[in-house]
């Protein structure tokens, strides 16, 4: 009974939970009563006003968002451009699979942050470094998922195509790529989540570029309300990108709702 009520008024209830969340936050902040430990919703709102009204802060904020988004996108696009072909080759050619697979597994297990100091030596404390980190982190989850997808393309799809004399190129574009699309999309979704996290980690270590740098810097100066405001911004960006990928996923892979997709 209660389930149906909640499901019917889904969005009002969701809105209600957000209000409850903010209220709890407000109460906790009041109890803690220490702006350096936890800034309340009111001072966070003030921080937003500050962020847009103060021109120097506003400019910093805008350039930070630009550089963060650019790092995420370019790194991700690069990872897609390299990860998908590599994954397909690994899935199709056993030799490539055997040669590349050990390294993919090892590199995939490395915690993202381990790339950061290496990249710092290559490109310094710049958004290009953040870009490289986001690429390095996203590319492996894309390769692994594309590889799994291509490897699991059913032989009952490939064999008839060959029997009917399909050209090599058409075999890839018309059979293998479409059949492994669900897995490719899973890889892309995981890739963007990881890319975002990698960029934020890198920027926090650099602490001079991007939103991550700004978050760390403001926290360092104990301007906690600004920090929370920026954390909310990056969270919203992240949620938006995730929903975008989910939407693309449902658009591209409209025929199949695999369990992997449901799990997200």
């Amino acid at each position: 009974m209660s389930a149906s009520i909640v499901n019917r008024y889904r969005y009002p209830f969701l809105f209600l939970t957000i209000i409850v969340f903010v209220a709890v936050w407000w109460v906790v902040a009041k109890i803690v009563n220490d702006p350096y430990a936890l800034a309340g919703p009111v001072s966070t709102a003030k921080a937003y006003y500050q962020l847009f009204a103060q021109s120097s802060l506003r400019n910093l904020f805008i350039t930070s968002i630009e550089s963060t988004l650019l790092s995420i996108f370019l790194g991700f696009v690069l990872a897609v451009a390299i990860g998908i072909p590599v994954g397909i080759f690994m899935g199709r050619y056993l030799v490539v699979d055997y040669l590349v697979d050990p390294w993919i597994n090892i590199w995939y297990s490395i915690p993202a942050i381990a790339f950061v100091p290496l990249v710092m030596n290559w490109a310094g404390l710049t958004s290009i470094s953040a870009l490289i980190v986001s690429f390095l982190i996203a590319v492996f989850s894309i390769i692994i998922n594309v590889y799994t997808g291509v490897k699991n393309v059913s032989a009952s799809l490939v064999e008839p195509a060959i029997a009917f004399g399909i050209s090599k190129r058409a075999l890839y574009t018309k059979v293998i790529l479409p059949a492994s699309t669900p897995n490719i999309m899973v890889g892309l979704r995981l890739g963007i989540t990881r890319a975002i996290e990698g960029v934020i980690v890198a920027e926090m270590v650099f602490s001079v570029v991007g939103l991550g740098g700004m978050i760390f810097d403001t926290a360092d100066k104990l301007e906690m309300s600004l920090t929370i405001a920026l954390v909310i911004v990056i969270s919203l960006i992240s949620i938006a990108l995730n929903y975008l990928m989910k939407y693309l996923d449902h658009k591209v892979v409209f025929w199949k709702e695999s369990s992997a997709l449901k799990r997200g």
């Binding site: 989540t193 934020i200 926090m204 978050i215 403001t218 926290a219």
Partner: peptide, 16 residues
């Protein structure tokens, strides 16, 4: 799932 938890680190650390 979407929120990068790393962004919370400064909050946690400097607040904790």
């Amino acid at each position: 799932y979407a929120i990068p938890m790393v962004a919370l680190i400064p909050l946690l650390y400097f607040g904790s």
